[in-house]
């Protein structure tokens, strides 16, 4: 399972890099999104993948049932997703405005237009 997820995150990263290297801005955003998923997967795996109980103390019990899942990686991923949601939403507005202003979504053409 670890291996599978490791390969998956590698593939996502590679695909993301490939998309980033295209000239189109829309693909650039998609590529960055894929890379952010790959990062989330790495964090997810780092907590250790296992069948475990939720890390909540049951009513009446005094300690956690073992084995319990590590809640931190999930909290981290959730935070990272929330933040990248904000950033990518903004980025989309940015490339849309850039497209409107310059009439191209090719980043090199964009720099030429202005100089």
């Amino acid at each position: 399972m670890h291996l599978l997820i490791a390969i998956l995150s590698g593939v996502l990263f590679a695909a993301g890099v490939w998309l980033i290297l295209r000239r189109s801005l829309a693909r650039l955003v998609l590529g960055l999104i894929l890379i952010s998923h790959s990062a989330s997967l790495v964090i997810f795996t780092s907590g250790g993948l296992q069948h475990a109980e939720p890390p909540l103390v049951e009513k009446g019990a005094t300690a956690l049932q073992t084995p319990f899942a590590d809640p931190l990686p999930q909290a981290l991923i959730l935070t990272a997703i929330v933040i990248s949601f904000g950033l990518f939403a903004f980025f989309l507005v940015l490339i849309k405005r850039a497209h409107q202003e310059t009439g191209t979504d090719d980043i090199d053409a964009m720099s030429e237009v202005e100089s």
């Binding site: 990062a39 964090i43 931190l72």
Partner: peptide, 12 residues
């Protein structure tokens, strides 16, 4: 993203 991956490795 690299920061996140680094943090993931470090946490692991």
């Amino acid at each position: 993203m690299l920061f996140l991956i680094g943090a993931g490795v470090l946490y692991g």
